[in-house]
């Protein structure tokens, strides 16, 4: 069955690039523009995998992941953090919030799809 990936990013450019790469790899893609919107779409679309940016207005990626993990319904949904910030502290914060893994921007599509495949059952 086709898996659905939710991408949460305030940048249209990033959303489009993710869409292009993931669609091509055979995923169904739904999008959200920030953490608040992300939580809404999450409830509606029940995605299998989530990819989120960190720096976003209204609610950042950490808040989004925490909000998501607070709901037992999404405890098993893997979340990949998408960020240019590859430093250890950021990764640790993402992990503390409940992130499954990360993708360093600018991603290349092969790595992106590989990371998604790695966390997807």
């Amino acid at each position: 069955m086709t898996k659905t990936v939710l991408t949460v990013d305030d940048s249209r450019t990033m959303r489009d690039m993710l869409m292009l790469a993931l669609k091509d790899a055979g995923y169904n893609v739904v999008q959200a523009v920030d953490g608040v919107h992300g939580l809404e779409v999450l409830a509606e679309e029940r995605p299998d995998i989530v990819i989120t940016d960190i720096n976003m207005p209204r609610m950042d990626g950490f808040g989004f992941i925490e909000g998501m993990r607070a709901d037992p319904a999404y405890s098993g949904v893997p979340v990949l953090v998408l960020t240019t910030e590859s430093d250890a502290a950021k990764k640790q914060r993402a992990r503390d919030a409940g992130a499954t893994g990360w993708i360093v921007k600018p991603f290349d599509p092969v790595r992106l799809v590989d990371a998604v495949r790695r966390v997807a059952a």
Partner: peptide, 14 residues
């Protein structure tokens, strides 16, 4: 401000 510069960089990198 940070987010704006950050997003420009992120896209430009790609």
């Amino acid at each position: 401000c940070f987010r704006a510069v950050h997003s420009v960089k992120g896209g430009a990198g790609a």
